[in-house]
């Protein structure tokens, strides 16, 4: 059982925060033209750089065989001998895929039931996606091991705890910004602590 990654999206559908733990699929930093500060801490993309030189907390659990934590459809992007720096999806594309799948599934769920019903999670053989939506349009997405129970309560705890304390009550964070994420050291370490304290983590 483990937790792979966390995404937070805002009301403008932009990814404003990303953090990962035991990812098994490599991820590249986005190209400089699509770079949005304050979202993730992936080392900036450089032409000669290999994917293995990412910051230490993200480089754990690398395996070339890779159980996919990302979207399975994108699997052909890797392993085609394009060189180590080309492995994995760029971050911005992966975030778009995650948001897209959440949004379209949510709309289908609503249409099928005819009521305003929330999508809570779905799972594949390789991962499980948990979704928590706030009324203000923030969407918290967590990818975890498929065998884990519902982790929606964890996302709610993140919202009422770390998010409120270090983002909403932080005057230095522009909450409705389209150009910047909400990353800050305290929030990142609080999220990290919270996740590592969970029994499903490990």
């Amino acid at each position: 059982m483990t937790i792979f990654s966390l995404y937070i999206f805002d009301r403008h559908c932009d990814c404003i925060y990303y953090q990962d733990w035991n990812r098994t699929r490599p991820l590249r930093a986005p190209s400089t033209t699509n770079f949005k500060p304050g979202v993730h801490r992936l080392a900036p993309a450089q032409p000669s750089q290999t994917a293995g030189t990412r910051e230490s907390i993200f480089s754990s659990g690398f395996s070339s065989g890779g159980i996919g934590t990302g979207i399975t459809k994108a699997g052909n992007a890797m392993g085609s001998g394009a060189g180590a720096s080309q492995r994995g999806l760029p971050f911005d594309e992966e975030a778009k895929l995650v948001y897209g799948v959440v949004l379209s599934l949510r709309n289908m769920v609503k249409k099928l039931s005819g009521r305003d019903e929330p999508l809570t999670s779905y799972s594949t053989p390789h991962y499980k996606l948990h979704l928590y939506e706030t009324l203000t349009g923030y969407r918290f997405v967590l990818l975890s091991d498929p065998s884990s129970d519902s982790l929606r309560f964890v996302l709610r705890q993140l919202y009422t705890g770390a998010f409120l304390e270090y983002v909403v009550r932080n005057p230095l964070i522009d909450m409705d910004s389209r150009t910047e994420g909400i990353d800050n050291d305290q929030f990142r370490s609080a999220v990290d602590r919270h996740m590592k304290s969970l029994s499903v983590f490990s």
Partner: peptide, 16 residues
């Protein structure tokens, strides 16, 4: 208000 609403929702857990 734009920030207080987050605090409010987190504390009360009210629905739409």
């Amino acid at each position: 208000g734009t920030r207080l609403i987050e605090d409010f929702l987190a504390r009360t857990g009210l629905q739409r």
